[in-house]
């Protein structure tokens, strides 16, 4: 780089406004170029002289006192508009933070519940005796639950459908007793869980989702929380859900 290009940067360099890399480069050049170093020294001298000459005028003590009296004892700006806005902003951030934490916890709780339901579904199917009441007859299965769960429910008529009721068992989710029914379609088994509404903390309304690789539908109806859980296609889950919903209403 030619010296005139280095010199064009000298003022910014001496004002402390050059970025690190150009400053280092100019530093190195000044150590090897007497011409630019002399120029830099002259500029430093001028800067010092301007600073000394520039601090020239001093207010009189009387004038200082006069201004001091005018502004003395004015209230703090603690609650002016700016601070109110800043405080409101902080409150919004705090509320957003708390809400976010709450939602995260809720989400985590839902995930834990679905995880437990997945365990119940898989462990039941893996069992040598998956159901305690073995019957394809809903009129046998439903009465079996009497006195075992704190609610009653209806089961759908499966004639003219490809679903089969295999039976049922009592289950527990978060120490809440519920009914666990097993249905079959083709070679797949689907769990249907019923719990008292709001007792187990599950949320959601009839919207098939993917939980732990299973397809799940859940809703509340007539004071009960229904969960349909299986590895079948979402459409099969939806059809069984429709049958259950239709029966519950009847």
């Amino acid at each position: 780089m030619a010296c005139d290009q280095w010199r064009a940067q000298l003022d910014a360099y001496l004002d402390g406004e050059l970025r690190t890399e150009p400053m280092r480069a100019l530093d190195a050049h000044l150590r090897t170029c007497p011409g630019c170093a002399g120029d830099a020294l002259a500029r430093v001298q001028l800067k010092r002289a301007i600073k000394a000459s520039g601090a020239r005028f001093t207010p009189s003590p009387e004038f200082r006192n006069q201004i001091q009296k005018k502004i003395a004892g004015k209230p703090r700006r603690s609650w002016n508009v700016g601070w109110v806005l800043a405080t409101a902003g902080l409150a919004v951030v705090l509320v957003a933070g708390l809400l976010s934490t709450y939602l995260e916890r809720q989400n985590l709780r839902q995930q834990q519940l679905y995880s437990e339901l997945a365990d119940l579904h898989v462990s039941t199917l893996a069992s040598a005796n998956p159901v305690d009441v073995v019957s394809t007859d809903r009129h046998t299965v439903k009465p079996w639950f009497q006195g075992k769960v704190p609610f009653t429910f209806n089961l759908p008529e499966l004639q003219n459908t490809d679903f089969t009721l295999l039976g049922g068992r009592v289950t527990y989710l978060g120490q809440v007793p519920g009914a666990h029914l097993i249905y079959q379609i083709r070679k797949h088994q689907i769990s249907v869980f019923l719990f008292p509404e709001n007792a187990v903390g599950l949320r959601g309304t009839s919207n098939i989702s993917k939980e732990r690789t299973f397809n799940v539908d859940t809703w509340t109806q007539d004071g009960l929380r229904y969960v349909v859980f299986g590895d079948v296609a979402p459409e099969d889950i939806r059809r069984l859900s429709s049958l259950l919903k239709g029966t519950a209403r009847s």
């Binding site: 402390g16 601090a55 020239r56 005028f57 001093t58 207010p59 502004i71 004015k74 703090r76 700006r77």
Partner: peptide
């Protein structure tokens, strides 16, 4: 070297403005 002033802390106007009095007067006179 030109340097930046630190942002002010909340306080009374007097606490913030009076330390600048001499400098402001000098600048005004120039």
């Amino acid at each position: 070297m030109c340097v930046s002033a630190d942002p002010p802390q909340p306080g009374t106007f007097e606490e913030l403005a009076m330390p600048l009095f001499g400098q402001l007067y000098n600048f005004a006179h120039w």
